[in-house]
Amino acid sequence: MPETVPLRIVFMGTPEFAVPTLEALLTWPGCQVVAVVTAADKPAGRGQKLAESAVKQAAVARGLPVLQPTNLKAPEFQQELRSYAADLQVIVAFRMLPEAVWNMPRLGSINIHASLLPQYRGAAPINWAIIHGDRVTGVTSFFLQHEIDTGNLIFQDEVPIEDEDDFGAVYLKLQHAGAALALRTVQAIAAGTAPSIPQSPGRGDLRPAPKLQKETGRLDFQQPAAALANLVRGLSPWPTAFTTLPDGRGLKVFRARALPGAPSADAPAGRWLTDGRSYLRVQTPDGQFDLVDLQLEGKKRMPVADFLRGFNAAVLQG
């Protein structure tokens, strides 16, 4: 039966990705955001001043109560959370919740995930979809349950990944698609029309989306050029793919492309190639990996032509 009074909602999220969803919920009179839960302030920058999360900044600007627990299982936090008498909790890019928290509202808790579940369950779904060369991704709303990203599906919306899209571009697309999906989901729950569809069981073709590690971004020039280009796209502008020049200096790569073609006898995989003016490439087993936008350690990010000015190409023969 449809709700006759606004749903009381507790919103949980931390990064900028979650802010449009909070703002979307605040625009609809059918719900009332009664509190926001986000990460504790953390030291950041050279001066190590305490930095507030993007969600906290948005919540404070709108006069919303903010909770910043360091321990989600702490009785005092759960008691305070319970005092807001939420009908529903909406979670976007937050931490794993204990059952006592996600099961607290009478309508449960929903999550907005940046993939088409059950594909890419985990912490870094946007990155891994691009790294694997997918042409389509999307956003999913689902009810939380015990195992991460396995709850019953509510809605899904597809979002294309264009050839030149990197992590930053897809992040922005999904940020806004997720906000629209969250509002549609909450409206359906308020009306009593939201579906609850069990996810298909895990199969061999399901790809996980584990947290990114430092070594995830290391470029291995024994891999195909297209795979390397996708790795760069999937990690740009952050945390960034990287390699090491023959002289030992680190090099971050923000943009690159694959140039198909069989390697010549005098250019085995891993050989650096340049004309010293306009291109910097590395031979791979199936073509050349063309570095377009890069950053030498201790220097600024720049296009390859600017990088090569004053660069001693002799170090590439080391």
Rank of each mutant, 00 (worst) to 15 (best):
F307V: 01
L50W: 11
A180C: 01
P20F: 03
R62N: 12
W28C: 10
A262V: 13
I130C: 12
A74T: 10
Q156M: 11
R257M: 14
L212R: 06
N71W: 07
L67N: 10
A123N: 06
G122V: 02
I131E: 11
G108M: 12
D293N: 05
V90G: 06
R121K: 12
L294A: 05
E162G: 15
T140Y: 11
G133Q: 04
R218V: 06
V34K: 14
A59T: 12
P239K: 10
H132Q: 07
L206W: 14
R95E: 06
A35K: 09
E158H: 07
A191R: 14
A313D: 07
M96G: 09
R281M: 06
A35T: 07
D220T: 13
P208V: 01
W28P: 09
I148T: 03
H176D: 09
L144V: 14
V60A: 09
T140P: 12
H146D: 13
A258E: 01
R207P: 02
E297L: 02
T137D: 11
E297A: 05
A226V: 12
A35Y: 14
I130K: 10
D293F: 08
E76P: 01
V10R: 00
D163V: 02
E164K: 00
T243V: 07
R184S: 09
M12A: 13
P75N: 14
I126T: 02
P98F: 06
A123S: 02
P285Q: 02
L235R: 10
V304I: 06
Y171Q: 01
T193W: 09
P195V: 10
A267T: 14
I130D: 08
V159Y: 08
A58Y: 04
S196Q: 15
G133A: 04
A44M: 05
V19T: 14
Y279W: 05
T21A: 15
F307H: 00
P263M: 13
G133N: 05
A74V: 10
K214G: 00
L316M: 04
V315L: 00
T185H: 08
A209K: 07
S278K: 14
L88A: 14
A229G: 02
A129I: 01
A44S: 12
A179T: 03
L144H: 12
I126A: 03
V37G: 05
A61G: 14
D205P: 04
F77M: 08
Q295G: 02
I148Q: 05
P125G: 00
A85M: 06
L26N: 08
E3Y: 00
V36H: 05
L219Q: 01
A194M: 04
R8M: 10
A262M: 15
I189N: 01
P198V: 15
K214H: 04
A85R: 15
T284P: 00
P198D: 15
A86H: 07
A179D: 04
Q283M: 03
D247F: 08
